[in-house]
């Protein structure tokens, strides 16, 4: 009984974690370049609804995903123009993006609520037949979930171990110095914002294509905001984002397992536990100053050469 419960639990963790991971890694790219994007929730909503609309129109999963990402990218571009080019306060620009995304997704999705689509299923079980059952369960995920984890590693490598990543980090840590060293601050920030927006959009498409196989107004249900918080939990590191996403995914995946097991468990407490874990982690990180200064110094600070410090 316990063994099956654990195996079933482990098998559902990756799909829970993937949307959080994608959005968190996207936001890490943004923030390492010094731009805070609070619009993730809105970008995810737009991508989720457009993916469903394309699927309902007969488009395949690939087309639906691309369309969703394109729509998310358009909304991200609005944010990029506001926050990077016009140097509007990033918090305000982010909130505007959030509101726009939620509003537009509700508008274009009106009339298509709760209509199911084929969506994206897990890989065929037969591929994993030769493995131990528990391992097969964990590995038998959909392609997009694999992509999520692959992207996290790739982004970590690029940010931490390439020249491109070094320049990106320089822009986020000390934009004037980067500028003086010949890095085009606006261009790097623009690129980072758009790349981050793409990942947030993939996260949104994952919710509708893999998670629910349909669109309902408001279905992102705060997951974009959790991603914003998870950036801090991951200390702006894409590898640690995997751990953070797995932690959230594991606890969120535990809830349906326990609910459906019929055990008498305090559901409200369990649902609260990821936030308690975050709080505990942040407290510990603060107490031991362990990566407490990981926040990019120039985060949230628009850069204008003429106003250089």
């Amino acid at each position: 009984m316990i063994a099956t419960l654990l195996a079933a639990w482990a098998a559902t963790i990756p799909a829970f974690a993937a949307p959080f991971l994608l959005a968190t890694v996207g936001l890490i790219i943004n923030e390492r370049a010094g731009v805070m994007n609070l619009g993730a929730e809105g970008i995810m909503a737009i991508a989720a609804v457009v993916s469903v609309l394309i699927s309902l129109d007969g488009g395949g999963v690939g087309v639906a995903l691309l369309g969703g990402v394109a729509a998310g990218l358009v909304l991200t571009a609005v944010f990029a123009v506001l926050a990077v080019l016009l140097r509007v306060d990033q918090v305000l620009a982010g909130l505007v993006t959030f509101a726009l995304g939620i509003g537009i997704s509700g508008y274009v999705g009106d009339g298509y609520d709760n209509q199911t689509i084929p969506g994206l299923s897990a890989l065929p079980t037969s591929l994993f037949g030769w493995m131990p059952k528990t391992l097969a369960g964990v590995l038998d995920q959909d392609v997009l979930t694999y992509v999520a984890f692959g992207i996290a590693v790739l982004v970590w490598y690029i940010i931490e171990h390439t020249d491109l990543g070094l320049r990106l980090r320089a822009v986020g840590e000390d934009a004037p110095a980067a500028d003086a060293a010949g890095v085009n601050v606006a261009l790097y920030r623009l690129g980072a914002v758009l790349a981050g927006g793409v990942l947030c959009a993939v996260a949104g498409a994952h919710l509708s294509l893999v998670g629910s196989h349909l669109w309902v107004d408001g279905m992102v249900a705060g997951r974009g905001w959790i991603a914003v918080a998870m950036v801090t939990l991951a200390r702006w590191n894409a590898l640690r984002a995997i751990a953070a996403a797995l932690l959230f995914g594991a606890i969120q995946a535990l809830v349906p397992q326990l609910l459906s097991s019929g055990l008498n468990v305090p559901v409200y407490f369990i649902e609260m536990s990821p936030y308690l874990a975050t709080l505990a982690y942040l407290l510990l990180a603060g107490m031991f100053a362990n990566g407490a200064d990981a926040q990019p110094v120039d985060l949230g600070r628009p850069y204008l050469r003429e106003e250089r410090r």
């Binding site: 079933a8 629910s212 249900a221 609910l259």
Partner: peptide
């Protein structure tokens, strides 16, 4: 719906 689908999957697994 995301949560509803996940609970459904968990119930089936069990």
């Amino acid at each position: 719906p995301v949560k509803e689908a996940q609970i459904s999957a968990a119930m089936i697994q069990q």
